[in-house]
Computed example of a mutant assay.
Amino acid sequence: MLRDMVSRQGGTTVLVPQEQRTRKRQPLYRVLLHNDPVNTRDYVVATLQEVVPQLSEQDAVAVMLAAHNTGVGLVIVCDQEPAEFYSEQLKSKGLTSTIEPET
């Protein structure tokens, strides 16, 4: 996107195009929950809500059911650092989790 800059030279106004600086967004990452044949469904839902507080109970149930029915459920899409944190927290509580770049 260009933004015009006004420059006055010898009584003449000249419009000088200038590039607008934009920050490049960091790539987002998907936190994935894999099917868990060991822990109860209630435990998985409670753990999801504990680790990712912005998940409602309904969302946590949906993630758990997706993982149960298809083998993998999408927990959240976020920046890399929080994605790594969420995945590690899920693992520390006995759940299987990975992250991958969002495509």
Rank of each mutant, 00 (worst) to 15 (best):
T70R: 10
V45P: 04
M1E: 13
E50M: 04
R30Y: 14
T103L: 15
H68Y: 06
V51I: 00
S92F: 14
E84G: 07
M64G: 00
T47R: 05
V51G: 01
V44Q: 02
E50P: 03
G11R: 00
R30W: 12
A46V: 11
Y43G: 03
V63F: 00
A83N: 13
V52R: 05
T70W: 07
T96W: 11
A60T: 02
T70I: 08
E19D: 02
T40Y: 07
G71M: 05
N35H: 08
V61Y: 15
Q49S: 04
A83L: 06
D79A: 14
S56K: 01
N39S: 10
P101R: 11
K91V: 08
M64F: 00
T47G: 09
Y86E: 08
Q26A: 15
L33H: 01
T96Y: 09
Q49L: 02
T12I: 11
L2F: 12
L95R: 00
V61A: 12
E100P: 06
A66S: 13
P17A: 00
G11A: 02
K93F: 10
Q18C: 05
Y86Q: 04
Y86T: 05
T70S: 10
G11V: 00
A46W: 09
E81K: 13
P53Y: 04
H34A: 13
D4M: 08
L90D: 07
E57G: 10
Q49Y: 06
V77P: 13
P82D: 00
R25H: 13
T103N: 13
V61C: 07
A83Q: 14
Q49T: 04
V52E: 08
N39E: 06
A66T: 08
R3P: 00
A83K: 13
S92V: 10
P82R: 00
V77Q: 12
L95P: 02
V16A: 01
N39G: 03
T22Y: 06
C78P: 12
Y43F: 08
T12P: 11
E19P: 01
Q58W: 05
V75R: 01
T12E: 15
V72C: 06
Q80E: 14
V14A: 02
V16W: 02
D4L: 06
D42N: 11
P101V: 09
T47D: 03
L15T: 10
A83S: 15
V44N: 01
R8A: 13
T12V: 11
Q18R: 07
N69F: 13
M1C: 13
T40H: 05
V52T: 03
V14R: 02
D4E: 05
V75A: 04
L55Y: 04
S92N: 11
Q9R: 14
I76C: 12
R30T: 15
H68E: 03
S7V: 15
L55H: 07
F85Y: 14
E57V: 07
A66G: 06
V16R: 05
N69T: 13
V38Y: 15
L74E: 14
D79L: 12
V51A: 01
N69L: 12
V63E: 04
H34L: 15
Q20Y: 04
E81D: 12
G10V: 05
Q18L: 07
S56T: 10
R21W: 04
E88F: 11
E57L: 08
K93T: 07
M1I: 12
M5Q: 12
Y29S: 09
V16P: 01
P27A: 10
K24T: 15
